[in-house]
Nucleic acid binder design. Structure first.
Lengths: 145, 145
DNA sequence: GTGTTTGCAAAGTGTTTGCAATTTA
DNA sequence: TAAATTGCAAACACTTTGCAAACAC
């Protein structure tokens, strides 16, 4: 990291810690992506969409690195992967318990907080298996009337 | 369809009706796949797995036709598509209300009957949207102890 | 300096498509 | 015969990988 870069990144030093805590080196690319992902509200991104954003902000990050970083952030618990579409992978910055609305027509995702949706009965895991997660996707389409 | 083929297919005439009712022509390929799909218990297949089965039974069907047929059967309500893995599409012969266990380690799916799992609270659809489905996937992994 | 990370381009995987030949009705 | 369907091969979209150059520590 250059001295200039360090100055530029000063206001984002918590990302630096976040990445270090995850056991990753805080490279320019990882910091840039962390800034996009964790600066504001919770977000849902795909590799393409995040790469597009980075380009728009003149951050130089290759698509391959975006993929790598999303997976590294996922396996270190900074992100969570959401499966709603067989064609692309989504990543959610909200790693807490919650579910999703999926807008099939435009591929958008929004959160459903855990307390807006509750399961009364959950089946026991099959013999010898442990439940890893219970994922609920509410698919919605434009109302046609 | 040849006369010989008609004779061979006599015991499976209900597939013929099923396909015709769906507005599709009962071709050799569609009948063969229907036989594999709907002969016994409910099943979960991928295009590859069904194509493999067809080959094993010496049915001559191309992979492209398997894909086309799975989609046609899905859009005519004979099958239902299940999204559990970003890498491949699954199709379920059980089109009724139910949910799934997904065995992440080997890609297997099993049904959870609707009455083994119930939602107390379902959020209202977002403004202008209608709920198309509520899909629950219980991801399980081998218990490590 | 050593080990990690990046970016490119190539390869990979699962899926769809264009189109001539074949089959169904 | 007209319209639908098939199968191949090529195209496709998304994702992963191999490896030399660049970077972090």
């Amino acid at each position: 990291m250059t001295e200039l870069w360090k100055q530029h990144m000063r206001p984002y030093s918590h990302f630096l810690d976040q990445i270090r805590l995850a056991g990753l080196r805080p490279t320019r690319q990882r910091l840039a992506l962390a800034k996009l992902l964790f600066s504001g509200e919770n977000r849902h991104v795909t590799a393409e969409s995040l790469h597009g954003e980075a380009q728009a902000e003149k951050m130089r990050v290759s698509l391959a690195t975006v993929y790598n970083t999303l997976h590294q952030f996922t396996s270190t618990g900074l992100l969570r992967e959401i499966v709603v579409d067989a064609q692309r992978s989504y990543f959610d910055t909200n790693t807490g318990d919650h579910h999703h609305f999926y807008f099939e027509e435009n591929g958008m995702l929004t959160d459903i907080s855990d307390d807006m949706m509750s399961l009364t009965k959950v089946p026991a895991a099959p013999e010898g298996m442990a439940i890893k997660s219970v994922d609920i996707v509410v698919r919605v389409v434009e109302k046609t009337q």
